[in-house]
């Protein structure tokens, strides 16, 4: 599994709408929601992260997604050696 944090830049005033959409993404927790920015932390298999990231861009009101921090805990862990 891997952990990544994303900064989402929002169109002004659509934060709540986006937060509601984001709550349906599995493995995602919303750590911060500001006026124009949201910070989301996602825990998913590393191979799925790119899809998660492109999914985030489809969320209504999101202008831009920045991968802020990535800690790929690698495939070995997913195979149960951890």
């Amino acid at each position: 599994m891997a952990i990544a944090s994303f900064v989402l830049q929002m169109e002004p005033g659509r934060g709540a709408e986006a937060a509601a959409a984001l709550s349906r993404v599995p493995g995602l927790t919303l750590e911060f929601s500001g006026e124009q920015n949201l910070v989301a932390v996602v825990e998913r298999a590393s191979a799925e992260l790119p899809q998660v990231e492109s999914g985030l861009k489809e969320v209504p009101g999101v202008l831009c997604v920045i991968t802020a921090y990535l800690n790929i805990e690698d495939e070995l862990e997913a195979a149960g050696s951890c």
Binding site: S5, Q9, E31, F32, N37, V39, E43, A68, Y69, N71
Partner: peptide
């Protein structure tokens, strides 16, 4: 460790927040 990394991840993201305009032009 997992939660710690998660919190760190969030903290790192927060650090980037005030750089908004630069990030909007990737």
């Amino acid at each position: 460790r997992r939660q710690f990394i998660k919190y760190s991840a969030a903290a790192f993201a927060m650090l980037l927040l005030d750089k908004g305009p630069a990030l909007a032009a990737p």
